[in-house]
């Protein structure tokens, strides 16, 4: 019983973390139709910027400044790189982000070295919040959960309730029409890309000190964010949210199970836990390529 509730709590926490990581990716995909392979790299840049900025002005200002700075970099990359790649097709665009991820990791190596940096949780958020059975629940995790839910609310409102959101959605299907109505579509896309990158960076500022800020952190989350977005349905914010929670809870419970798999002498369910999301993704893509709540196929 104890393990059940702890696992449920851990699962929800992990799920919300996954959503935080992938929301920016969903935003960019749903608005621009671009799968951004460099997403995790911007998450990493966010963590490093958060580390540097917070060492000068403290954690809370960094929470705002780092995403803005990384978002601005993202917007510039869209303006001077992506747009050019876009002209030579979808594949070129995707490969551009692929190469970008490679380059960003090198730059991080160069600037901050190859070892982890000592980026710490601020004292005001450090320490336990409450105790469940014998385990404590850290305040910082609760903070992460709150930010994640906040992201969901903000994105949902932005996409469905604001003029900008509607404009961008319209621009995705009928860019010429929107352009003809006097809107600057390229600039709109630049802002969306910057925004999505900023969200990744925000996740980085928060995740960097909860976990470890090091050059390998991008590769560590690189593919799991795609799983979340694909399973949730490419372009659906709510879908991504549901998928994150489902994957988080499923994976956490799988860890708790020591049942040995049939036919494999040595392997337990718990050992396979981190592979499960990929299995789910493949099955989902075969059975229902739209994902849980996607509105269209990719």
């Amino acid at each position: 019983m104890e393990l059940f509730f702890t696992s449920l709590l851990n699962g929800v926490t992990y799920g919300l973390l996954l959503f935080m990581l992938s929301s920016g990716l969903t935003l960019i995909f749903s608005m621009m139709g671009v799968l951004n392979f460099a997403h995790a790299s911007f998450y990493m840049l966010g963590a490093y910027f958060g580390y540097v900025i917070s060492s000068y002005v403290g954690f809370y200002p960094a929470l705002l400044l780092a995403p803005l700075a990384v978002g601005a970099i993202g917007a510039l990359i869209e303006r001077y790189g992506m747009r050019r790649a876009h002209a030579s097709g979808h594949l070129a665009e995707l490969l551009f982000t692929f190469g970008l991820a490679f380059l960003i990791e090198e730059v991080v190596h160069l600037v901050w070295g190859k070892s982890p940096v000592p980026y710490r949780v601020p004292p005001s958020l450090d320490g336990p919040l409450f105790t469940l059975f014998s385990a404590t629940f850290p305040t910082y995790k609760a903070f992460m959960m709150a930010v994640s839910v906040g992201m969901l609310a903000a994105l949902y409102a932005l996409l469905t309730r604001t003029r900008v959101g509607l404009l961008v959605q319209a621009a995705l299907s009928k860019p010429d029409m929107v352009e003809a109505l006097g809107h600057n579509v390229p600039r709109l896309f630049m802002l969306v890309f910057g925004g999505g990158v900023g969200l990744a960076a925000l996740a980085g500022v928060i995740g960097g000190n909860a976990f470890v800020t090091e050059p390998g952190m991008a590769a560590a989350v690189g593919s799991i964010v795609f799983v979340v977005v694909v399973v949730g349905g490419l372009g659906s914010i709510t879908g991504a949210f549901v998928a994150s929670l489902a994957i988080g809870i499923l994976q956490t419970f799988a860890v708790a199970v020591d049942y040995k798999l049939p036919f494999f002498d040595r392997v337990t369910v718990s050992q396979t836990a981190p592979v499960l999301p990929y299995l789910i993704m493949v099955l989902m893509l075969i059975a229902r390529p739209r994902g849980l709540m996607g509105t269209r196929e990719t």
Partner: peptide, 25 residues
């Protein structure tokens, strides 16, 4: 069964699964 991005994502998933099982077995 699918082409385009869906195909790319499926291959990503299959690749990850095979790579992970290589350490498990």
């Amino acid at each position: 069964r699918r082409a385009g991005t869906t195909f790319a994502m499926i291959t990503l998933g299959v690749g990850e699964m095979v790579a992970a099982s290589s350490l498990m077995f």
